[in-house]
């Protein structure tokens, strides 16, 4: 049978493929063309239509493997590992990529340990060097360093951060093969998903504009101005960790190492000092604006535009200016 393809785990939940899979297919296409091999996708779940597999093909896959079973409806790292190990044994991929989503970061290490493979976490770049070796680039030490890593086992396995690879074009003229694989899920995995109990209400990772507040805010009520500003800009509100610890905002609003990694076109930081843990989550922002009364605040070192001033004066003025522009 065929082998050596670049395989992309395509996270599937509630009838939708996670978009990081499309980004990875784009990257895989580049890698595969360099190596002269195919691009493959794999979808694990329940009631997966061919239309979903075709999407992967439109974004660059040559073949799509599907494991479809009622017991695979919810993520179970043990059963999902079983089918992915089965696939690796059947098709012998040269590279196996996962999105660095919570699911990917829970599943990929199980598969890697099962097959004795190295695994590189949370990559922000993947390159092919002149020898055809895969080079994985990832931040470590809370984002203070970038490590360049080669893997000596096969397949080369990594989880890759969402929204760092370019989204490829969706080309509906592309054709490929859809292969449904049967696998007899044996034993009880010991895991039972009793249900989805809440949905995330905001995904900072996908926001184009993030308006963030830190300990420069004196009380919870004052965050209202931040919300007003975010609404005017069409952005979403984020916060530094102390505000989450205070209970002023839920964790899903936190930017940073122990919160969300954001990559907006515009990041505005009000009353945030710029600790390494905070920067780790927003370093990839395109344009950074910082407002702080302390001229020596480290956030200014990574700002495109900094205002040395009091956020309690700056934000109302900003709102006023933006309103004026809106009125024309």
């Amino acid at each position: 049978m065929f082998s050596n393809g670049v395989l992309v785990y395509s996270e599937y939940d509630e009838g939708a493929i996670h978009p990081v899979a499309f980004e990875l297919l784009g990257k895989s296409r580049e890698i595969a063309d360099r190596l002269g091999v195919e691009v493959w996708g794999v979808i694990v779940g329940y009631r997966i239509g061919d239309d979903k597999a075709r999407e992967l093909i439109y974004y660059g896959a040559d073949r799509v493997f599907i494991y479809d079973h009622p017991r695979l409806e919810y993520f179970d790292p043990v059963l999902y590992r079983d089918v992915l190990v089965d696939l690796v044994e059947r098709v012998n991929p040269s590279v196996f990529l996962f999105g660095a989503t919570p699911l990917g970061r829970s599943l990929a290490p199980r598969v890697a340990a099962a097959i004795g493979a190295g695994l590189t976490a949370d990559c922000i770049d993947i390159q092919v060097d002149e020898n055809g070796d895969i080079i994985q680039v990832r931040p470590a030490f809370t984002g203070n360093i970038l490590a360049y890593i080669k893997t000596t086992s096969r397949p080369v396995m990594s989880t890759v951060r969402y929204r760092v690879m370019k989204m490829p074009n969706r080309d509906t003229s592309r054709v490929g093969e859809i292969i449904r694989l049967a696998y007899s899920l044996g034993r009880d995995s010991g895991i039972r998903v009793l249900g989805r109990i809440s949905r995330r209400s905001v995904d900072l990772g996908r926001a184009d504009i993030v308006v963030a507040g830190g300990r420069g805010f004196r009380k919870k009520e004052d965050l209202k101005m931040l919300e007003d500003l975010a609404n005017l800009l069409g952005g979403v509100v984020g916060v530094s960790r102390p505000l989450v610890d205070e209970g002023w905002m839920p964790r899903e609003r936190q930017v940073g190492f122990s919160g969300n990694t954001v990559k907006p076109r515009l990041y505005m930081a009000f009353g945030i000092s710029g600790s390494p843990q905070h920067i780790a989550g927003m370093r990839g922002s395109e344009v950074v604006v910082a407002v702080n009364i302390d001229p020596s605040a480290p956030i200014f070192k990574i700002a495109d535009y900094g205002i040395i001033g009091d956020l309690y004066e700056v934000i109302p003025k900003l709102i006023e200016e933006l309103n004026r522009i809106k009125r024309g």
Partner: peptide, 10 residues
């Protein structure tokens, strides 16, 4: 996991 899931584990 982004969304929250209730899980029983043996």
């Amino acid at each position: 996991m982004g969304d929250k899931f209730l899980v029983e584990v043996m």
